[in-house]
């Protein structure tokens, strides 16, 4: 089956357990992490993950779950289908 991929981005104050909590949420929604990278930009923790969402049944539910994590940790978490990045940066 063809992969449907999305980009998860997390921006906020660095703290213990960010990756653990976000990936737990992803695995509960049957999402496989394909790539992950993180950096600290001007004191801000920035993490990007490419995840496989072809198994995920309900993107809206994932959104709500991530929102909860985002509120709990005081971080900004977004998930966007990868096509938008491909369209903007690849011809």
């Amino acid at each position: 089956m063809e992969q449907k991929r999305a980009v998860v981005s997390v921006v906020g104050k660095d703290q213990i357990g960010i990756i653990a909590k976000v990936t737990t949420c992803l695995s509960e929604n049957k999402m496989n992490v394909l790539d992950i990278s993180q950096t600290i930009l001007q004191d801000f923790f920035t993490m990007m993950m490419i995840v496989d969402v072809s198994e995920a049944e309900d993107l809206a539910k994932l959104h709500d779950d991530l929102d909860k994590v985002s509120q709990e940790l005081g971080l900004k978490i977004d998930i966007q289908l990868e096509d938008i990045f491909q369209t903007m940066h690849r011809i």
Binding site: V7, S9, V11, T39, T46, M48, D78, F85, H89, R90
Partner: peptide
């Protein structure tokens, strides 16, 4: 082709900031 970290960042910056 895989996306570069900076490209993803650029898009996110455009939307959020």
């Amino acid at each position: 082709m895989n996306l570069a970290f900076t490209e993803i960042q650029e898009t996110i910056r455009m939307v959020q900031m």
